[in-house]
Every structure is written in C-alpha cells, then in structure tokens.
Design a binder for these strands. Sequence first.
DNA 1: TGTACATCAGTGAACGCGCGTTCACTGATGTAC
DNA 2: TGTACATCAGTGAACGCGCGTTCACTGATGTAC
Lengths: 217, 217
Amino acid sequence: MTVAGKETPRERYRAQLRAEVKERAWEQIAAAGAPGLSLNAIAKQMGMSGPALYRYFAGRDELITELIRDAYRSLADTVRAAAVPGADLARLGRALRTWALEDPHRYFLIYGTPVPGYHAPEDITEIASEIMECLLDAAQADGAAADTPADAPLEAHLAEHRRWAAGHPAPPPALRRALLFWTRLQGVLSLELAGHFTGMGFDPDELYESELRHLTR
Amino acid sequence: MTVAGKETPRERYRAQLRAEVKERAWEQIAAAGAPGLSLNAIAKQMGMSGPALYRYFAGRDELITELIRDAYRSLADTVRAAAVPGADLARLGRALRTWALEDPHRYFLIYGTPVPGYHAPEDITEIASEIMECLLDAAQADGAAADTPADAPLEAHLAEHRRWAAGHPAPPPALRRALLFWTRLQGVLSLELAGHFTGMGFDPDELYESELRHLTR
DNA sequence: TGTACATCAGTGAACGCGCGTTCACTGATGTAC
DNA sequence: TGTACATCAGTGAACGCGCGTTCACTGATGTAC
C-alpha cells in the first residue's frame, strides 16, 4: 500500500499495465464471451509473452474476479450517483438502463448465466448490497407520500424477511417497491440485451418507460 | 425419413444413442456450463472413443444447437399445455416458473448470456414465436372482460409496431399485458436462478406470485 | 437357406491448436552508501 | 557523483492437458439373390 500521490514510477506502471490487461480482457469478452477469455491471448495482443502477465495477475481466475468486481463497482457508482437525495425511482431506473446499454458484456458478467462452481468473494457481495441500499433509499423517498399497502401478502412476507435490507428502515411497501422495481427493469433489460426482442418490431425502451411510469405513480 | 412405427433397428439405435449423447451433454452443462461442453468428454463418458460421435452429430455446434432447440421445444410445449382455452395468465406464469426451476441450465441456455456470433437457425426462431402466440392468446382471453387502456403511450406504440404479434388479433391492452407479463416474470426468474436472491432472506416465490396477482387482476 | 455384397458403427492414430502455469534466466531499473 | 547491490519486468523453454476434427481401417450388421 502506498499513500495516494506518492506512487513510485514502478507502481504507476504496474497499475497502468493492469488496467491495459483489463481493457484487452473486455475486448476479448466482447469478441468471444467470457469463457473464451485467455491470459495468453491477451499477452500476445499486447506484444508480450504469456507468462509475463503472471507478474500482474495470479492467474486467469483472479483476472475474471477483478473484472466482475469492476463491473459491480461501476454499477454501484452509477446507481449511487443517480440516487441523490430527492431523486425518484425513475431516475435510478434510467441510470441503470444507460449503464446496461453502454456495455452489455459488462451487464452479463454480473447478471448473465452463472458459472457453475464460481463463488464471488465477499467484497463483491458487499458491493451488491450497497446497490440494494441505494435502491431502498430511493424507494423509500420516492413513495413516502403514499405508503399505502399495494400487495398485502407480499408486504407481510417482506416485513418478516428483511435480512437483505440490512437494517434499512424502509416500510414494507417501500421494500416491495424496491424489489419489484429491480426485477421488472431487469426483466426488460435482460431480454433486450440478450436479443430476444430483435426483429419483433417494437422499441424496448417503450416497455421500459412504461414500467417506470407504473412503479413511480 | 421413415414412417413412424416402421423404424429399422438401426434407426432406433441411432435415435437412442443421439438421445443418450444429449443427456450426457446436459449433465456436462450442469457441471461446467455450456462453454465447457465437449464431444470428446461425452464420448469418453459413454465408453466410446471421440470420433465415434461424428456419426451422430456433425460437430460440437450441431449438438449445442440441438440442445437449444430441445430447450425451446420443451418450453413451448409447456406453455402451450398451460394455455388451454379458458386458462388465465397466472396459470401460464406458474407453468413457466415450474419449467424454469425444473432445470435452470435449460433455462439459461435460452435466456442466459448470449454467445457472441451465434445465430439460432430459423426453426428455433419459429418456436420462439409459437411461445409468443400462446402468450397473446392467454393475454387476450384473460383480460377480455376489461380491456380498458392501462398505459396509453405504450399501447399506442405497440398498436403501431405489432410485427411480433404475427397477425394476432389481440387488442393493444392485451399486447401490453402479454409483453409485460413476460418481462416481469423473466425478471424475477432470471435473478432468482442466477442466485442473486440467495442469502437475502425472502422467498422469490412470493415476489413471483405478487407479479401474477398484479397482472391478472 | 446359404452365400456375396453393401452399409454402417466404432477404433486408433494423427494433425494442429491453444490453454494455464512453472521455472530458470537475462537485462533493465531503482536504491543505498 | 559514482559504484555495488537488490529488486523487478519480461523472455523462452517446457510440461501436461484437452480440444475439434480428419482419415484409413476393422468388424459387425443388414440386404439381395
């Protein structure tokens, strides 16, 4: 660890090279999918020999985990930036969509087909709950005016099983809003990004906006 | 092509062996994900040598395509069976959920991360629209009693872009119901199956049922 | 019914490939006196 | 300022592996007369 701003040239170089490896990794994911990611291929593309990269990453797995972490981090930052005090859920929803469309491969690294046997390290799980927290904040602020129950059975269930809310004080209707907000938008997004709407004629954005209208009114 | 019931022993054997290969393929997908699927490994597991399988499949790609086709086919059959006349959308929704939970890998082969560069052959696209048709039937039958507009902007858009409906006579509110039904359920399902709810404490089924209540009333 | 032939299943060797990863080593860069 | 040493970056060879796929071939199964 080095104090920021006091990096040695070598540390700077290391960080820069790690970053370049990751960039190439994303390019490779875009070209052949995450399973086709290969350290050797990245090295070759950067004009160095395979084993050189082992100075920067412990192995293929560490690189992938790093990419996943970065993806989560960027989503969390995006969501946090959109969940400023006073913002409504729709704003958060549009930020999510922009983020997802910006780089579908990044989206799928988080929300795509899970790799059998892979378990994310704990710090990644924490980023995920950071996202949930923003969601709850927004859901609570958004509907604070009208927190009448909208679906009693689900709200009762959520009121009793709110471990995921991690102590967040949102009332049951807000818990429900947050969760359904999330699943509904993910529904449109994942189908859209996976190409299940291509050739169908309509604009997925209209679906998305319709969901935003319904959740926030 | 042979008339059913007039199969020669050899044809019967071929069909049986192809089926066994596919079974092993699913097992392998369950163990290592679709990208790790290997003809050689399947052959070895079946006690034969690698090249033997080339008598039954043109190559790895054909096997995968076949698996995808089977997955689509089984979903379409499930949906069709649930969309009997008089059935409501909720029934179709529950059938979808049962089908998905029955074999998540099968689900992800259709709705998971798309493989860059892969394009499904046309007959698979047709199965997909078969599913859409059932959906539209159910959506139309279900809400026929109250087809008042629920979201004018979206319904207007869908009324003008109904290529996907392939001539189906469903009115705009039913178009909207069908699509949102689909995306909302997929939203819960894909997050649930990818494990994004694990450790959160609540039961995804409650979310799912809440969505069903909202769409069908 | 038996014989001659065609068809098909499966094998084993081989080709070329790329992967992840380890290891001993060279050469450059930074550090301490 | 220069010299001696330690640290680090990157190389090339090597290991073992598994992949998809082709090809010539053996042996069994079915077919025609």
